[in-house]
Protein backbone atom coordinates (compact mmCIF):
# COMPACT_ATOMS: atom_id res chain seq x y z
CA UNK A 1 0.00 0.00 0.00
CA UNK A 2 2.81 2.38 0.90
CA UNK A 3 4.31 1.65 -2.47
CA UNK A 4 1.07 2.56 -4.25
CA UNK A 5 0.92 5.87 -2.41
CA UNK A 6 4.53 6.54 -3.27
CA UNK A 7 3.79 5.82 -6.93
CA UNK A 8 0.77 8.13 -6.86
CA UNK A 9 2.96 10.90 -5.43
CA UNK A 10 5.52 10.11 -8.13
CA UNK A 11 2.83 10.49 -10.79
CA UNK A 12 1.82 13.90 -9.41
CA UNK A 13 5.51 14.82 -9.49
CA UNK A 14 6.10 13.92 -13.14
CA UNK A 15 2.77 15.54 -14.03
CA UNK A 16 4.02 18.77 -12.45
CA UNK A 17 7.35 18.46 -14.26
CA UNK A 18 5.58 17.99 -17.59
CA UNK A 19 3.30 20.99 -17.07
CA UNK A 20 5.63 23.44 -15.35
CA UNK A 21 9.12 22.73 -16.64
CA UNK A 22 10.70 22.31 -20.05
CA UNK A 23 11.72 24.80 -22.70
CA UNK A 24 8.82 26.97 -21.54
CA UNK A 25 8.59 27.13 -17.75
CA UNK A 26 5.54 28.20 -15.80
CA UNK A 27 5.57 29.32 -12.17
CA UNK A 28 3.23 27.46 -9.83
CA UNK A 29 1.11 30.52 -8.83
CA UNK A 30 0.78 31.47 -12.50
CA UNK A 31 -0.33 27.92 -13.31
CA UNK A 32 -3.17 28.05 -10.78
CA UNK A 33 -4.31 31.47 -11.86
CA UNK A 34 -4.42 30.22 -15.47
CA UNK A 35 -6.50 27.25 -14.33
CA UNK A 36 -8.83 29.69 -12.62
CA UNK A 37 -9.30 31.41 -15.96
CA UNK A 38 -7.07 34.44 -15.61
CA UNK A 39 -4.46 35.64 -18.07
CA UNK A 40 -0.93 36.29 -16.89
CA UNK A 41 -0.02 39.94 -17.22
CA UNK A 42 3.09 40.36 -19.35
CA UNK A 43 2.92 36.82 -20.78
CA UNK A 44 -0.06 36.72 -23.06
CA UNK A 45 0.94 33.38 -24.62
CA UNK A 46 1.24 31.58 -21.31
CA UNK A 47 -2.46 30.81 -21.02
CA UNK A 48 -2.55 29.34 -24.50
CA UNK A 49 0.56 27.22 -24.03
CA UNK A 50 -0.63 25.80 -20.74
CA UNK A 51 -4.23 25.13 -21.69
CA UNK A 52 -3.75 24.04 -25.29
CA UNK A 53 -0.38 22.31 -25.16
CA UNK A 54 1.15 21.35 -21.83
CA UNK A 55 -1.93 20.45 -19.84
CA UNK A 56 -3.65 18.37 -22.54
CA UNK A 57 -0.40 16.48 -23.17
CA UNK A 58 0.00 15.71 -19.49
CA UNK A 59 -3.63 14.73 -18.93
CA UNK A 60 -3.95 12.56 -22.03
CA UNK A 61 -0.58 10.99 -21.26
CA UNK A 62 -1.72 10.17 -17.74
CA UNK A 63 -4.99 8.63 -18.88
CA UNK A 64 -3.40 6.62 -21.67
CA UNK A 65 -0.62 5.48 -19.36
CA UNK A 66 -3.11 4.30 -16.74
CA UNK A 67 -4.98 2.37 -19.42
CA UNK A 68 -1.86 0.79 -20.92
CA UNK A 69 -0.37 -0.14 -17.58
CA UNK A 70 -3.57 -1.66 -16.24
CA UNK A 71 -4.46 -3.64 -19.35
CA UNK A 72 -0.90 -4.93 -19.69
CA UNK A 73 -0.95 -6.29 -16.16
CA UNK A 74 -4.33 -7.94 -16.73
CA UNK A 75 -3.13 -9.69 -19.90
CA UNK A 76 0.08 -10.86 -18.27
CA UNK A 77 -1.88 -12.24 -15.34
CA UNK A 78 -4.56 -13.94 -17.43
CA UNK A 79 -2.14 -15.49 -19.91
CA UNK A 80 0.28 -16.39 -17.09
CA UNK A 81 3.22 -15.11 -19.04
CA UNK A 82 5.19 -12.00 -18.09
CA UNK A 83 5.94 -11.36 -21.77
CA UNK A 84 2.37 -11.53 -23.05
CA UNK A 85 1.16 -7.96 -23.07
CA UNK A 86 -1.43 -6.60 -25.51
CA UNK A 87 1.13 -4.50 -27.38
CA UNK A 88 3.29 -7.53 -28.13
CA UNK A 89 0.63 -10.04 -29.11
CA UNK A 90 -0.81 -8.09 -32.01
CA UNK A 91 -3.23 -5.48 -30.71
CA UNK A 92 -0.93 -2.53 -31.41
CA UNK A 93 -0.10 -3.66 -34.92
CA UNK A 94 -3.76 -4.39 -35.70
CA UNK A 95 -4.78 -0.98 -34.41
CA UNK A 96 -2.16 0.50 -36.73
CA UNK A 97 -3.61 -1.47 -39.63
CA UNK A 98 -7.09 -0.19 -38.81
CA UNK A 99 -5.85 3.38 -38.73
CA UNK A 100 -3.98 3.06 -42.02
CA UNK A 101 -7.01 1.44 -43.68
CA UNK A 102 -9.05 4.46 -42.54
CA UNK A 103 -6.43 6.82 -43.98
CA UNK A 104 -5.82 5.09 -47.28
CA UNK A 105 -9.28 3.83 -48.16
CA UNK A 106 -11.57 6.37 -46.56
CA UNK A 107 -9.33 9.41 -46.61
CA UNK A 108 -9.69 9.78 -42.87
CA UNK A 109 -7.57 11.93 -40.59
CA UNK A 110 -7.71 12.78 -36.91
CA UNK A 111 -10.83 11.28 -35.40
CA UNK A 112 -11.40 8.99 -38.38
CA UNK A 113 -7.94 7.55 -37.94
CA UNK A 114 -8.59 7.04 -34.22
CA UNK A 115 -11.83 5.23 -34.99
CA UNK A 116 -10.01 3.00 -37.45
CA UNK A 117 -7.46 2.17 -34.78
CA UNK A 118 -10.19 1.32 -32.30
CA UNK A 119 -11.91 -1.00 -34.77
CA UNK A 120 -8.61 -2.62 -35.66
CA UNK A 121 -7.76 -3.37 -32.05
CA UNK A 122 -11.15 -4.86 -31.25
CA UNK A 123 -11.25 -6.87 -34.47
CA UNK A 124 -7.80 -8.27 -33.72
CA UNK A 125 -8.83 -9.63 -30.35
CA UNK A 126 -12.01 -11.10 -31.83
CA UNK A 127 -9.99 -12.87 -34.53
CA UNK A 128 -7.42 -14.20 -32.06
CA UNK A 129 -10.23 -15.48 -29.88
CA UNK A 130 -12.04 -17.10 -32.77
CA UNK A 131 -8.91 -18.84 -33.98
CA UNK A 132 -7.57 -19.93 -30.62
CA UNK A 133 -10.89 -21.16 -29.25
CA UNK A 134 -10.78 -24.63 -27.89
CA UNK A 135 -12.78 -26.61 -25.41
CA UNK A 136 -11.20 -25.25 -22.28
CA UNK A 137 -10.23 -21.64 -22.26
CA UNK A 138 -8.15 -18.95 -23.82
CA UNK A 139 -5.30 -19.45 -21.42
CA UNK A 140 -2.15 -20.44 -22.99
CA UNK A 141 0.37 -20.24 -25.62
CA UNK A 142 -1.96 -20.82 -28.52
CA UNK A 143 -3.57 -17.45 -27.89
CA UNK A 144 -0.18 -15.76 -27.71
CA UNK A 145 1.22 -17.39 -30.83
CA UNK A 146 -1.83 -16.71 -32.96
CA UNK A 147 -1.61 -13.10 -31.82
CA UNK A 148 2.00 -12.97 -32.96
CA UNK A 149 1.04 -14.41 -36.36
CA UNK A 150 -1.76 -11.88 -36.82
CA UNK A 151 0.73 -9.20 -35.85
CA UNK A 152 3.14 -10.11 -38.67
CA UNK A 153 0.28 -10.05 -41.17
CA UNK A 154 -0.95 -6.69 -39.88
CA UNK A 155 2.53 -5.20 -40.22
CA UNK A 156 2.83 -6.41 -43.81
CA UNK A 157 -0.57 -5.01 -44.79
CA UNK A 158 0.10 -1.73 -42.97
CA UNK A 159 3.38 -1.26 -44.82
CA UNK A 160 1.70 -2.07 -48.11
CA UNK A 161 -1.09 0.46 -47.63
CA UNK A 162 1.36 3.05 -46.33
CA UNK A 163 3.41 2.77 -49.50
CA UNK A 164 0.34 3.47 -51.66
CA UNK A 165 -0.87 6.76 -50.15
CA UNK A 166 0.64 10.13 -50.85
CA UNK A 167 3.63 11.19 -48.81
CA UNK A 168 1.82 13.78 -46.67
CA UNK A 169 -0.75 11.28 -45.52
CA UNK A 170 2.01 8.74 -44.97
CA UNK A 171 3.94 11.18 -42.81
CA UNK A 172 0.79 11.95 -40.86
CA UNK A 173 0.06 8.29 -40.33
CA UNK A 174 3.68 7.51 -39.43
CA UNK A 175 3.48 9.85 -36.45
CA UNK A 176 0.27 8.25 -35.22
CA UNK A 177 1.76 4.79 -35.77
CA UNK A 178 4.69 5.65 -33.51
CA UNK A 179 2.41 6.77 -30.71
CA UNK A 180 2.10 10.48 -30.09
CA UNK A 181 0.35 12.87 -27.74
CA UNK A 182 0.61 15.59 -30.38
CA UNK A 183 -3.08 15.40 -31.20
CA UNK A 184 -4.08 15.77 -27.55
CA UNK A 185 -7.28 17.77 -27.24
CA UNK A 186 -9.89 18.19 -24.54
CA UNK A 187 -12.33 16.24 -26.70
CA UNK A 188 -10.03 13.21 -26.82
CA UNK A 189 -9.34 13.53 -23.13
CA UNK A 190 -13.01 13.47 -22.29
CA UNK A 191 -13.61 10.35 -24.41
CA UNK A 192 -10.74 8.42 -22.84
CA UNK A 193 -11.59 9.80 -19.40
CA UNK A 194 -15.15 8.54 -19.74
CA UNK A 195 -13.95 5.07 -20.70
CA UNK A 196 -11.64 4.96 -17.68
CA UNK A 197 -14.37 6.18 -15.34
CA UNK A 198 -16.59 3.30 -16.46
CA UNK A 199 -13.99 0.54 -16.80
CA UNK A 200 -11.60 1.05 -13.88
CA UNK A 201 -14.25 0.64 -11.14
CA UNK A 202 -15.44 -2.57 -12.79
CA UNK A 203 -11.86 -3.84 -12.81
CA UNK A 204 -11.49 -2.98 -9.12
CA UNK A 205 -14.86 -4.54 -8.27
CA UNK A 206 -13.97 -8.10 -9.27
CA UNK A 207 -10.21 -7.95 -8.77
CA UNK A 208 -10.40 -10.50 -5.96
CA UNK A 209 -11.65 -13.07 -8.49
CA UNK A 210 -8.94 -12.07 -10.95
CA UNK A 211 -6.17 -12.56 -8.42
CA UNK A 212 -7.65 -15.94 -7.49
CA UNK A 213 -6.93 -17.05 -11.07
CA UNK A 214 -3.22 -16.56 -10.39
CA UNK A 215 -3.07 -19.69 -8.29
CA UNK A 216 -4.55 -21.80 -11.07
CA UNK A 217 -7.99 -22.51 -12.49
CA UNK A 218 -8.79 -25.55 -10.37
CA UNK A 219 -7.77 -23.91 -7.15
CA UNK A 220 -9.75 -20.80 -8.10
CA UNK A 221 -12.93 -22.68 -8.90
CA UNK A 222 -12.45 -24.59 -5.64
CA UNK A 223 -12.55 -21.22 -3.92
CA UNK A 224 -15.90 -20.54 -5.57
CA UNK A 225 -14.64 -18.20 -8.27
CA UNK A 226 -16.47 -18.41 -11.62
CA UNK A 227 -13.31 -18.95 -13.66
CA UNK A 228 -14.59 -18.70 -17.22
CA UNK A 229 -16.78 -15.64 -16.73
CA UNK A 230 -14.10 -13.83 -14.74
CA UNK A 231 -11.62 -14.43 -17.51
CA UNK A 232 -14.01 -13.20 -20.19
CA UNK A 233 -14.95 -10.13 -18.22
CA UNK A 234 -11.34 -9.13 -17.69
CA UNK A 235 -10.32 -9.73 -21.27
CA UNK A 236 -13.15 -7.49 -22.46
CA UNK A 237 -12.28 -4.78 -19.93
CA UNK A 238 -8.57 -4.89 -20.71
CA UNK A 239 -9.25 -4.75 -24.44
CA UNK A 240 -11.56 -1.75 -23.99
CA UNK A 241 -8.84 0.08 -22.10
CA UNK A 242 -6.06 -0.62 -24.56
CA UNK A 243 -8.22 -0.11 -27.66
CA UNK A 244 -9.44 3.33 -26.62
CA UNK A 245 -6.03 4.40 -25.41
CA UNK A 246 -4.42 3.30 -28.67
CA UNK A 247 -7.13 5.08 -30.64
CA UNK A 248 -6.44 8.38 -28.88
CA UNK A 249 -2.64 8.33 -28.85
CA UNK A 250 -1.53 5.67 -31.29
CA UNK A 251 0.29 2.59 -30.08
CA UNK A 252 2.86 3.88 -27.58
CA UNK A 253 5.35 1.03 -27.57
CA UNK A 254 6.26 -1.02 -24.52
CA UNK A 255 4.24 0.84 -21.88
CA UNK A 256 1.80 -2.03 -21.40
CA UNK A 257 4.68 -4.47 -21.65
CA UNK A 258 7.01 -3.09 -18.98
CA UNK A 259 4.52 -1.63 -16.48
CA UNK A 260 3.40 -4.96 -15.06
CA UNK A 261 6.86 -6.40 -14.38
CA UNK A 262 8.14 -3.10 -12.96
CA UNK A 263 5.09 -2.94 -10.68
CA UNK A 264 5.76 -6.49 -9.54
CA UNK A 265 9.29 -5.53 -8.61
CA UNK A 266 8.05 -2.49 -6.69
CA UNK A 267 5.40 -4.25 -4.63
CA UNK A 268 7.53 -7.31 -4.02
CA UNK A 269 6.64 -10.09 -6.41
CA UNK A 270 2.86 -9.76 -6.49
CA UNK A 271 0.62 -8.68 -9.34
CA UNK A 272 -0.76 -5.23 -8.65
CA UNK A 273 -3.07 -3.62 -11.18
CA UNK A 274 -3.05 -0.28 -9.37
CA UNK A 275 0.72 -0.08 -9.20
CA UNK A 276 0.98 -1.17 -12.82
CA UNK A 277 -1.48 1.51 -13.98
CA UNK A 278 0.36 4.22 -12.04
CA UNK A 279 3.70 3.13 -13.44
CA UNK A 280 2.24 3.18 -16.94
CA UNK A 281 1.11 6.78 -16.42
CA UNK A 282 4.47 7.82 -14.97
CA UNK A 283 6.29 6.30 -17.94
CA UNK A 284 4.13 8.01 -20.56
CA UNK A 285 4.19 11.46 -18.96
CA UNK A 286 7.92 11.32 -18.29
CA UNK A 287 8.69 10.03 -21.77
CA UNK A 288 6.55 12.78 -23.27
CA UNK A 289 8.46 15.37 -21.26
CA UNK A 290 11.72 14.01 -22.68
CA UNK A 291 10.27 13.83 -26.19
CA UNK A 292 8.97 17.41 -26.08
CA UNK A 293 12.16 18.95 -24.73
CA UNK A 294 15.03 16.74 -25.84
CA UNK A 295 15.55 18.25 -29.25
CA UNK A 296 14.95 22.01 -29.18
CA UNK A 297 12.28 22.90 -31.70
CA UNK A 298 11.85 19.36 -32.95
CA UNK A 299 8.93 17.42 -31.58
CA UNK A 300 9.57 13.71 -31.32
CA UNK A 301 6.50 11.52 -30.83
CA UNK A 302 6.44 10.02 -27.34
CA UNK A 303 6.46 6.47 -28.77
CA UNK A 304 9.99 6.94 -30.05
CA UNK A 305 11.22 7.64 -26.54
CA UNK A 306 9.35 4.77 -24.88
CA UNK A 307 10.56 2.45 -27.63
CA UNK A 308 14.22 3.39 -27.40
CA UNK A 309 14.34 3.62 -23.62
CA UNK A 310 11.98 0.70 -23.23
CA UNK A 311 14.00 -1.79 -25.25
CA UNK A 312 16.91 -2.12 -22.82
CA UNK A 313 14.58 -1.99 -19.81
CA UNK A 314 12.61 -4.76 -21.36
CA UNK A 315 15.65 -6.92 -21.95
CA UNK A 316 16.66 -6.45 -18.33
CA UNK A 317 13.12 -7.23 -17.11
CA UNK A 318 12.88 -10.37 -19.18
CA UNK A 319 16.22 -11.56 -17.87
CA UNK A 320 15.22 -10.78 -14.28
CA UNK A 321 11.79 -12.37 -14.61
CA UNK A 322 13.21 -15.56 -16.06
CA UNK A 323 15.84 -15.84 -13.34
CA UNK A 324 13.21 -15.26 -10.71
CA UNK A 325 11.07 -18.09 -11.97
CA UNK A 326 13.85 -20.63 -12.18
Amino acid sequence: MAMVIALAIGLVGVFAIRVLLGTYTVAIPDFFSILAGHSIPGAAGAKFIVLQDKLPHAVLGTLAGLAFGCSGAIFQLLLRNPLASPDIIGINTSASLGAVVAVSMFGAAGTGMATGGLIGAVACVAVIFGLSAQRESMVGNRFILIGLGISVLAVALTNYLLSRVNIYKAADAAIWLTGSLGSASWQRISVLGLVLVVVLPLIALFSRNLHALEVGDEMASGLGVPVASTRWLYVVLAVLLVAFAVAMTGPITFVAFVSGPIARKCVGGKHSLTASALIGAIIVVLADFVAANLIPGGRLPVGVVTGIVGAPILLWLVAAAQKERS
Binding site: L83, D87, I88, I89, N92, L148, S151, A174, L177, T178, T253, F254, F257, L300, P301, G303, V304, T306, G307, I308, G310, A311, L314, V318
Partner: peptide
Protein backbone atom coordinates in the same frame (compact mmCIF):
# COMPACT_ATOMS: atom_id res chain seq x y z
CA UNK B 1 8.27 -9.92 -31.13
CA UNK B 2 9.39 -7.64 -28.31
CA UNK B 3 12.74 -7.14 -29.99
CA UNK B 4 10.93 -6.33 -33.26
CA UNK B 5 8.81 -3.71 -31.52
CA UNK B 6 11.91 -2.05 -30.10
CA UNK B 7 13.75 -2.18 -33.41
CA UNK B 8 10.72 -0.72 -35.15
CA UNK B 9 10.59 2.32 -32.89
CA UNK B 10 14.27 3.01 -33.46
CA UNK B 11 13.56 2.70 -37.17
CA UNK B 12 10.66 5.14 -36.79
CA UNK B 13 12.84 7.62 -34.94
Amino acid sequence: AAFSAGAMSITNA
